[in-house]
Design a protein around this nucleic acid. Structure first.
Length: 153
DNA sequence: GCCAACGTTGGC
DNA sequence: GCCAACGTTGGC
């Protein structure tokens, strides 16, 4: 089982939204590296849900992958903000995965705290200029984060 | 609102 | 294949 981290702007889609909906397709990813990571996801993988571009950027909850990568229909919809004219039915460019809500942390694990943790040096999320919205959480870093996240569930 | 970092596009 | 221009992300 792999661990991933996915970013979302809470104004657009928050962990509370996921809790209410229980299951949701994670669409709108328009970055090749992020898409490729989604294609590596397996059913049951754990996703750390991160709030970005907000007052307190933080890991706020967890979800599991309930449906592996499949074409993201918003790329074909001219009315969608995620419309991509380069994506055709024959050659879909973009994928989505479906997530199922798992937990909201009692205490969000803030970016500030993560940055203050010397053991997390090298963790892509806390690197300057890191903009990737989907990233793997390597075993090494998960080992460090795990206790804190599982006990706050 | 600012700006640094990064990805993508398109001209050459 | 290079690189400048541009758009976007996201912390602060």
């Amino acid at each position: 089982m792999a661990i991933w981290l996915m970013k979302s702007e809470p104004d657009a889609f928050s962990i509370n939204d996921l809790k209410h909906r229980q299951r949701e397709s994670w669409d709108g990813v328009r970055n090749f590296q992020a898409r490729n990571y989604m294609r590596d996801m397996k059913q049951g993988d754990v996703v750390l849900f991160y709030h970005s571009s907000c007052k307190v950027p933080a890991i706020v909850g967890t979800a599991t992958v309930s449906k592996t990568a499949h074409p993201d229909p918003s790329c074909w919809d001219p009315k969608s903000p995620y419309y991509d004219p380069k994506s055709t039915a024959e050659t879909p460019r973009w994928d989505q995965v479906e997530l199922t809500f798992e937990s909201i942390l009692k205490k969000p694990l803030t970016l500030a705290v993560l940055k203050s943790w010397p053991e997390l040096d090298g963790f892509p999320l806390i690197q300057k200029g890191s903009r990737l919205s989907v990233m793997p959480v390597e075993e090494h870093y998960w080992h460090i984060l795990k206790s804190r996240i599982l006990c706050e569930k």
